[in-house]
Design a binder for these strands. Sequence first.
DNA 1: CTCGGCCCTGTGAAAGCGCTGAGGACGCCG
DNA 2: CGGCGTCCTCAGCGCTTTCACAGGGCCGAG
Lengths: 216, 216
Amino acid sequence: MLVVEDEARLAAALQRGLQAEGFAVDVAATGPAGLDAARHGGYDAMILDVMLPGLSGYELVRRLRAEQHWLPVLMLSAKDGEYDQADGLDCGADDYLTKPFSYVVLLARLRALLRRGAPERPTVLSVGDLRLDPARRRVTRADAEVALTAREFALLDYLMRRPGQVISKIELLDHVWDASLETAPNVVEVYVGYLRRKLGRDRLETVRGAGYRLAT
Amino acid sequence: MLVVEDEARLAAALQRGLQAEGFAVDVAATGPAGLDAARHGGYDAMILDVMLPGLSGYELVRRLRAEQHWLPVLMLSAKDGEYDQADGLDCGADDYLTKPFSYVVLLARLRALLRRGAPERPTVLSVGDLRLDPARRRVTRADAEVALTAREFALLDYLMRRPGQVISKIELLDHVWDASLETAPNVVEVYVGYLRRKLGRDRLETVRGAGYRLAT
DNA sequence: CTCGGCCCTGTGAAAGCGCTGAGGACGCCG
DNA sequence: CGGCGTCCTCAGCGCTTTCACAGGGCCGAG
C-alpha cells in the first residue's frame, strides 16, 4: 500500500493502522515523491491526500493515468469546498473520502477497491463505426481517420463514454470546458456543430431542452 | 517448448521431433494464440514462425519484449526477401533460421539458446526504419548512424518506447528532464525540433494541445 | 397558423500554441 | 585562455483554435 500524505501524524497513524491489518505500507510526503513511488513500486493501491506540497493529488492522478498506470486510488480531502468529490473522481481516482473520516470506513473502502482490482481501462472507445483511442489520440469513422482539435476531441471523448445517454449542456460545460461559469452554453452548440460536420450529421442527436445524445 | 506455426504439417513434425528429444511441446497456430501462450505458460523457449495469421512473428516478439518477457525466441522464416534476418534479430528474437532448415541445425540452435538462458537485456527498440540501442547508445535511421546528444537520445528513447501514443510535454519534462517543475515546456519543443532535423520532418507528429507522437 | 424560445451556423476577433533563430551559460579540451 | 559542443532561455512569428455574437431556422405549444 502506498500512502501519500504530508501531515506527518496522519501518515504515521495510517501506516500503523494498515500495517496492523497486514498491509505493507510505504509513505511519501510530497506530490512528486508520491508520483515517483506510484510509478515504480508495485503497489496494490494508493491512498492519496489532495492537498500536497509540490503537486496536488488531482494532478498526481491525472499524470499517473496519462502514463497508463491503473493503480487503484483512494482519495482523501479536507472538505473545505475548494475541491469536491466530482473533481476527484473525474481526474481518475477510484474512490473518495472526506476528512475527517472513520478509520473503519477507510478500511472498508480500501478492501472494496482491492477486490475490484485495477480495472482494465478501455483502451479504445467504440460506438457504431466510430472509434476513439485516448492514448493514441486518434479518432476514426469507418476506418477513416478524422482530425479533431483538442476541444473537439475532449467533447467526443466525454460523449462516447456514455453513448445513448442524454447529456446536458451544463454538464458538458463543466467537464469539457473546465467549469468556466461565465462561458455561454452556446459554445457547446458550436462544438457539437463542428463534430457533426466532421462525423456526420445524425450521429449527435439534439434533445431539445435537455442536451445531446450520441447515437448508438 | 512453445511452437508457434500455422502450417499444420510443419507444426506436427516439430512437435513429434522435439518430443522425441524429451521436450514437452505446446503448439499454437496463430499469432494471438502464440502471444497468449508465451505470456502465461512458463516455457523455456519458443520457436516462432514469422508469417502467422493475426499477428506477425515480429510483432509478437516486439510485444512480448515490451511486456518484459525475455523468453528465448528462435525465429523461422521463409526466405522470400520480404523480411530479413536483421529485422528478426532487431525486434528481439534471439536466433534466426531460414526455411527450409535442417532439423539437426534447428536442434543445435535450440540447445545453444537454452544454454544461454533468458538474458535480461533490453531489446533494441525499432520503429519503422529507426533503431535505437539503449545499451550501445546508438541510433540508426535506415542503417545510417545518427549522432544524437545525450538529451536528444533520452527524448527519442522515451518516445520510442511508446510509438504511436501521444505523450504530453508534461510527461516528457518529468521523465526526460527529471523533476523540472520550473523549466518551461518550451525546451521540449526545441528538442523535438532538433530531433526532427536529424531524423526527418514527419517522424514526430505534433498533436496540438496534447503532445507529440512518434509515427509508427 | 402563429409565436416564443431553443438551436444552428457564418463571421471574425483574440488568444493560444508551437516553431525557430539568436544567443547566453556552462563545462571540456587543447 | 579561446574554441567547441551542449543545454537551455527568450522573443517574435504564423497558424490554428477557441469563442462571442447575431441573424435566421426549426420545433412545439397553443
